[in-house]
């Protein structure tokens, strides 16, 4: 079991009504966190979007990125700066 901080941005943050939350579970990779959230309830269905982006400890990553205790994970829609 590890503890992670999960952050949300932009449309995800708004629809979830949440900036961040702390989760504990058997999370080997980022996708395990995502799946655990999707299983929590309908409000998390947006995390199943095909173009979801994610980051681990402030670096873009893929869903198969390994996780460690205390990591910060972020989920967000495609970026639109510039």
């Amino acid at each position: 079991m590890i503890k992670v901080k999960v952050m949300y941005f932009a449309r995800y943050r708004e629809l979830l009504g949440l900036d961040a939350e702390r989760l504990e579970g058997d999370f080997a990779v980022v996708d395990d966190v995502r799946k655990a959230l999707v299983a929590k309830g309908e409000q998390y269905a947006l995390l199943a979007e095909q173009n979801l982006m994610c980051a681990r400890n402030e670096e873009l990553c893929k869903l198969d990125e390994p996780l460690a205790e205390g990591d910060e994970v972020a989920f967000f829609p495609p970026v639109t700066g510039g």
Binding site: F9, A10, R11, E14, N51, A55, L60, A74, F76, P77, P78, V79, T80, G81, G82
Partner: peptide, 19 residues
């Protein structure tokens, strides 16, 4: 790759710009 997100104010209300 840079985490920025634009939310526009349009005549039909606010909307998030899509990638």
């Amino acid at each position: 790759r840079a985490p920025f997100w634009k939310k526009e104010n349009t005549q039909e209300g606010p909307r998030w710009v899509e990638g």
